[in-house]
Amino acid sequence: MTNKQDQKAAEVSEEDIALRMMEREELGLRLLLLKYGGKVKSFLRWKYGGQLDREDREDLLYQAAFRAWKYIDSFDDAKGSLGAWFVGIAQNVTIDFLKRERLPVGVVDYDPPEHVDETEMDPERRRLFEDLDRVIEQLPRMQQLVAKEDLRSGGEADGPALAKNLGTSANAVRVARSKGRATIAENLKKLGHNLGGDA
C-alpha cells in the first residue's frame, strides 16, 4: 500500500470512515481495511494461534469486512470504537468458522480451558505462532494439512474422519502426523521455543 494511502487512513477519523460506509462509498471500506485490516490479521494470529493458517485468516478478514459493510448501520460509537467493533466481528466469524470446520476429536483429550491463562497471552505467544506458521509451511503438503487440521481440532483430529476429508488412508495420516510433529518440535526448538517435550 502506498504511503500516501496509509497516511490518509491514519489521519481520517473513525466517524468519517463509518459515515462513508453508511453512504455505501467504497472508499469507506478501503479506509477501514487500511486502518484496521492489518491489526485484525494480527489479532487473529495472536488469539487463535495455530488453529488458523494464513489462508484462514485471509478468509476471515474478508468475511469480517463483508459483515462490517453489510451491518455498518448497526455500529454505535457510544458503545466503542469502530476498530473494536471490527475486531469483535472478526472474532465472531472466527468462532463460527471453528465450530463449522472442526473435525471430530481423536484420542487426545480435548479439554478447552475454562479461563484464559494470562501468561499464555503474552508477546511470546505471538512469536511462537509466527514461527509455527513458517515451520508448518515448510512441511510436505500432507504433513501440513494434518498438522493444521489437528491444531484446528484442538490437538488431534479423529484419524478416519481426517483421512476421509483428505482423501487418503488412516495409515497415511498416521505417518504424516508422526513425521510432521517430529519436524515441528525439532524446528521450533531450534528457534528457541521451549515446549513440553523439552522438559
Binding site: 480451558p113 484464559v116 518440535a185 515446549l195
Partner: peptide, 19 residues
C-alpha cells in the same frame, strides 16, 4: 517427546479460544 511438545503447542493454541 514429540507428542508432549505437540500437546503443549495445541494447548497454547487453544488458550485464547474461551477468551
Amino acid at each position: 517427546k514429540h507428542d508432549k511438545a505437540w500437546n503443549d503447542l495445541a494447548k497454547r493454541a487453544r488458550a485464547g479460544e474461551r477468551h
